[in-house]
Amino acid sequence: MVSMSQTSVPRWAWDASAPAAEPDLRGRVFTLVVLPGAGDVADRWSTALAGRDVRRHECGDVDAAVAALRADLAVARVGHRVLVAGTARECLAVRAAGVRAGLGDDEMAFGVVDTAERAVWCVHCDATTHAAVELEAVVPCTGCGRRLLVYPHVSRLTGAHLGFMVDAETPADGSAARPADGSAARSEGEAA
């Protein structure tokens, strides 16, 4: 097992016991992006930010959340902070939109209500699978059916985990993999 602190997966995206972030009160303007089921976290933020310039958006899904964030950031000035409340998959996806819009890690904070579901991007067919799957577990790709190992790496620009074929060394017909020195290839040739 890799040391998780050495990976690109933020703690809040895998550790269900990680507390929600506190608002950075040094900000001047705040965007709160609230996904379904995360109202309690956002309510605590709203209370902590009482009297401050806050734009709170209740969003039905990631697409709506990204649209609301983009609209705010299009006119935002430096001093803006973004807080996102939702599941880990949703938070990673909204974070990706923030990164693409030029936000730094010290301008975004997250309150995660559930870490079970992940987005897994298949390096073989480019499809993204959404599934409740642990890191370093295996999930079938919805695009090509390959069994993907969920590697502990998250793309900052998409929010998806890296997935690659877990048994890539094993040929599809079930025969033994070829050693790196090619000796298996020779012996096959001799057999033929």
Binding site: D24, R26, G27, R28, V29, V78, G79, H80, R81, G104, D105, D106, E107
Partner: peptide
């Protein structure tokens, strides 16, 4: 800058 909300990364 800090007073006006600039984060240290900027």
């Amino acid at each position: 800058a800090t007073e006006l909300g600039w984060p240290s990364s900027r």
